[in-house]
Computed example of a mutant assay.
Amino acid sequence: MSKTKGRLIGQLFERNKRDLLGCLTRRVGHEDAVDLLQETFVRLLRRREIGPILDEDAYLRTTAINLARDFSRQSKSMAKHVTPGDIPTEIAEAGLDPSQICEAKESVRLFYAALKSLPPKCREVFILRRFHDLSPDEIAQRLGISRNMVLKHLRLALERCHAALD
């Protein structure tokens, strides 16, 4: 990227970051809003490689809102599959003692926290693979990213989940 392009992107970022961050924070909370703000600009940069954008400010706002909607949908989907405090049926039926049940609950809580702490795209890839059983190629096509990027996201998600549970 040339210095002029870099400077223009920097100006665009400075001009829009406060508004976009506020919009995203209201929709998803501050912690996730920062990641979505970054993803908004990444998408702008990718889109600019394809061709010119007539109104970049409007494009950024629309992209940010769409990312927030996707994130909310994804969070609801994740909540359907993973709920902190749920005791898996096998554990409840196995007649385990209370300390084992506590350990299982803690593992679920740690897993959920690790999943929630992943960057949005990484979390989305993991959920699509683990809970929707999509192949890496299907995920790549659905999200518009490369298969290698899908595999990198999966690797990061697995590393963080394993680290949280160790």
Rank of each mutant, 00 (worst) to 15 (best):
M1D: 12
S2H: 13
S2Q: 11
G6P: 05
I9M: 12
L12A: 04
F13K: 13
R18G: 10
L20Q: 00
L20N: 00
L21I: 04
R27V: 03
V28Y: 09
G29P: 07
G29Q: 06
H30N: 13
E31K: 15
E31Y: 13
D32S: 11
D32H: 12
A33R: 00
V34M: 15
Q38E: 15
E39W: 04
F41G: 10
L44F: 06
R47G: 12
R47N: 15
G51M: 03
Y59N: 07
T62K: 13
T63H: 06
L67M: 11
A68Y: 01
D70P: 04
S72A: 09
S72R: 10
Q74T: 09
Q74A: 12
S75G: 08
S77M: 07
M78H: 02
V82D: 02
V82S: 04
T83W: 10
G85L: 11
D86W: 07
D86P: 00
A92P: 08
Q100N: 15
C102R: 14
Y112C: 04
A114G: 06
K116G: 06
P120W: 01
E124N: 02
V125Q: 10
F126N: 05
I127G: 03
I127C: 06
R130Y: 02
H132Q: 11
H132F: 11
D133P: 01
D133V: 07
D133R: 15
D133C: 10
D137H: 11
I139F: 01
I139M: 00
G144D: 08
I145C: 00
M149S: 02
H153Y: 14
L154T: 08
R155Y: 10
E159I: 00
R160C: 03
H162Y: 13
H162A: 13
A163Q: 04
A164F: 14
D166A: 11
